[in-house]
Amino acid sequence: EFHCGFEDGNICLFTQDDTDNFDWTKQSTATRNTKYTPNTGPNADRSGSKEGFYMYIETSRPRLEGEKARLLSPVFSIAPKNPYGPTNTAYCFSFFYHMYGQHIGVLNVYLRLKGQTTIENPLWSSSGNKGQRWNEAHVNIYPITSFQLIFEGIRGPGIEGDIAIDDVSIAEGECAKQDLTTKNSVDGAVGILVHIWLFPVIVLISILSPRR
């Protein structure tokens, strides 16, 4: 099992991508510059400690909209396969994220397998203001070879767009079903409401329509 709260000096062997536009920054409330923008970013780390550390992207000038910062995890080796079990070993990947501010851009997470030179579709993605709180994400992954996780923060349209992450974990075995992150849950709920609302309207129209 792997867990990183970014408390140690080498940030658990995470590294900065040298092909992006800017870097992630290790930070705590206690060491933060008093001139920082007050309406974005965490007040404390995920545990609530003002002495604890987290990683975040600073979106003040000279950063521009659309610029990207990528943080690379160490490379993980997969567990030996059980010849009588599933083809791929399952892992539960979880982390906390903080996206507070009126100019929040996008946080993407990618899974890169050994030998891959490009990354395309994110494993997980979120955008927009989520309020002044830490949220938790759980995602099942099924790597077939050694792998690496990539956190990509994309700068939004203004300076109030700091995005932070903390307490990254990887554990063998699938995540508990109640913990799994549900994508498009809001869209799904809206879709259900639309269909419920449309049904009586369609019935009413059919009743009122003149018969030929």
Rank of each mutant, 00 (worst) to 15 (best):
D8N: 13
E152P: 06
V168Q: 09
F199C: 09
P80N: 04
N88S: 13
I196Q: 02
Q16A: 11
G48I: 01
H195L: 13
V194Y: 03
S73M: 03
L111A: 01
E160P: 08
S49I: 00
H98V: 05
G85E: 05
T118N: 15
Y84E: 15
T29D: 11
T34Y: 13
P83I: 08
E51P: 06
T37F: 14
R133Y: 10
D179H: 14
S206G: 09
Y56E: 09
A69M: 07
I104C: 06
G9P: 08
H138P: 09
L123C: 01
G173P: 03
W134A: 02
S94L: 00
V203M: 05
K183H: 11
V194N: 06
R212G: 10
Y54L: 09
V203K: 10
G161F: 00
F93K: 02
L149S: 06
A79C: 02
S185N: 05
R211C: 10
N43L: 12
Q178I: 14
I78S: 10
T182E: 13
F93C: 05
T117D: 04
I207Q: 01
L72A: 03
H98F: 15
G85I: 09
L64K: 15
G66Y: 04
T89H: 01
C175K: 02
T182M: 10
D179K: 11
K177W: 09
I78A: 08
W24Q: 08
Q148K: 11
G101M: 06
F96R: 03
G105M: 01
T19M: 11
I78Y: 03
E152C: 06
G85D: 03
A69V: 07
G128F: 09
R155D: 07
T25W: 04
D20P: 00
T181K: 08
I154G: 04
P62V: 00
A30M: 12
V106G: 04
Q178R: 14
S126E: 14
D18G: 08
D179E: 14
I163T: 10
T25G: 08
Y97S: 06
I165N: 02
H195S: 15
R61M: 14
W124P: 05
K177I: 15
G5L: 09
